[in-house]
Simulated assay, not measured.
Amino acid sequence: MESREPHLYTPAGTVADLSHSQEEDPLVDEPLIPDCALQSAIRREFQAVPTPCHAGLLSLLHVTYVVLSMCLAVLCVLKAGQEELCSSILGDVNGESAILFGKVCLWVLVALFTGFAQRHHSRTRIKGYLRFYRRMQALKHLPLAVHSTGNVLLLVVLAARLSPTVRTYMLLGIIGLELLAGLPCLICYTVKVMQFNRDQPAPDVSQEEHSHDIDITHVPTETGFREGSSLEEVMEKQADLIEYLKQHNSLLSKRLLNLTAQH
């Protein structure tokens, strides 16, 4: 008669699974990173857009150019009795040529500013601020468009056979219209970028996640292709999401390393 002996061993993998469950379940159940800590870490890594100072300086130069151009036009081109003073300042260059040279220099400065702003706004798009990038896309190009349009009008005026007095008044009128159209664009751009730098918002994806937590009826943003949406828009949204997730994972890794070092 065979005696039944108790099993002295357990099936393979049982002890390992038990220890594995005891070690890892608390890590899974407990939140490793509070949302407030993650948001504060993202806010600390916020990089401000450094273009408001350049936009303000460009606005000041634009106003200075218009004022000096009017003075040159009145004193040197329209012959207000200051021919000797104009000759001592400008030399062999007449007043109209000096105004046109200044116009070309101002256009170059505006073009350089536009490229500089585009570079920094592209960085904000990579950082996850796609809505801000799109909102400022047209505004930061408007000053260059205004000055380029003014250049075309100046070429038309110079090509037309007008009397010197009429041509001077047309020149001043175009410069004045450029100031009225371009200066408000620069001021509006400066105000919006300064507000963005002051608020230091979280990336768009993070804001959407926060809004989902507050309002469960909120419809999530579509990142796939839908009818009526352009392929470029879909790719920009996907790039924004991928870049944000990379930053999110980097912050998670840093937090995990800190927790591991503490324990």
Rank of each mutant, 00 (worst) to 15 (best):
A159E: 05
C105L: 11
I42R: 03
T165D: 13
S250H: 09
I214K: 07
R123I: 05
R131I: 02
P11G: 06
L251Y: 03
H210T: 02
K254W: 10
S21M: 10
T14F: 12
G224C: 07
F225A: 10
E227N: 00
S69H: 00
V93E: 12
E24N: 13
A37H: 01
R43E: 11
A48N: 03
V93N: 09
L18D: 12
L154I: 15
T64H: 13
F116A: 11
A55L: 09
L144Q: 15
M136N: 06
G95Y: 03
T149M: 11
N249E: 13
S87F: 03
L171N: 03
D29A: 04
P6W: 15
I216T: 10
R161L: 03
L130D: 00
H212M: 14
I42K: 02
K103E: 10
E209D: 10
L241D: 04
L251S: 05
S230W: 01
G150Y: 09
M194R: 13
L60G: 15
L251A: 06
T64A: 15
V108M: 02
I214F: 03
L257P: 00
S230E: 04
G228P: 02
S163T: 12
L251K: 05
V157M: 14
C86E: 04
S148G: 09
F196Y: 14
H120V: 06
S21K: 15
A117F: 12
E83T: 03
D215P: 02
D199E: 13
F101L: 11
L130H: 01
S148C: 07
K127M: 10
H147F: 09
S206N: 02
R4I: 11
H248G: 00
E208R: 01
D17I: 09
A16Y: 13
E178A: 13
S88Q: 15
L60I: 13
V110G: 01
R135Y: 07
L256F: 04
G128S: 03
A160Q: 11
G176N: 07
P11I: 04
A159G: 08
P203R: 01
S97V: 10
C53G: 04
P184C: 14
A261V: 08
S250W: 05
G81W: 07
G128K: 00
T10Q: 13
L154E: 15
R134M: 14
P52I: 13
D92I: 10
I187L: 12
V67C: 06
N258H: 07
H54A: 12
T149W: 06
L130G: 00
E232C: 07
L78E: 12
E23N: 15
A111G: 05
N151V: 08
L171Q: 02
R44C: 02
R255P: 00
M235K: 04
